Simulated assay, not measured.
Amino acid sequence: MLQIYHNSRCGKSRQCLVLMQNSNLEFEVIHYLTHPPSFNELSTVIEKLNIKPIALVRQKEKIWIEKYEDQKLDDKQIILAMISNPILIERPIVVKGNKAIIGRDLEKVSKFIA
Rank of each mutant, 00 (worst) to 15 (best):
I4K: 01
Y5L: 11
Y5F: 09
N7C: 04
N7V: 03
S8F: 12
S8K: 15
R9S: 15
G11R: 15
G11V: 10
G11C: 13
K12S: 15
S13G: 08
S13A: 15
S13R: 10
S13I: 07
R14E: 11
R14C: 09
C16G: 10
L17W: 05
L17F: 11
L17P: 02
L19G: 02
M20C: 07
Q21V: 09
N22H: 11
N22W: 08
N24P: 02
N24S: 12
L25R: 15
E28I: 13
V29F: 07
I30C: 03
I30A: 00
I30E: 00
I30V: 13
H31T: 11
Y32V: 09
L33N: 03
T34R: 15
T34F: 04
T34L: 06
H35Q: 14
H35G: 05
H35A: 10
P36T: 04
P36V: 01
P37I: 05
P37A: 04
P37V: 05
P37K: 04
F39S: 08
F39W: 07
N40A: 14
E41C: 07
E41L: 07
S43Y: 05
T44P: 02
T44S: 13
V45W: 02
I46R: 07
E47A: 11
K48T: 06
K48H: 10
L49N: 05
L49Y: 06
L49G: 07
N50A: 15
I51F: 04
K52C: 06
K52V: 12
K52Q: 13
K52D: 09
P53H: 09
P53I: 05
I54V: 14
I54Y: 09
A55V: 11
A55K: 11
A55E: 14
A55C: 08
L56I: 10
V57M: 12
V57Y: 08
R58K: 03
Q59I: 14
K60D: 12
K60L: 08
K60H: 08
E61C: 05
E61T: 05
K62F: 08
K62G: 06
I63W: 02
I63F: 06
I63G: 01
W64P: 03
I65G: 08
E66G: 07
E66D: 15
Y68F: 15
E69M: 06
E69D: 09
E69Q: 12
D70F: 01
D70G: 13
Q71P: 03
Q71K: 13
K72S: 10
K72I: 08
D74V: 03
D75G: 02
D75K: 06
D75H: 01
Q77W: 00
I79T: 00
L80Q: 12
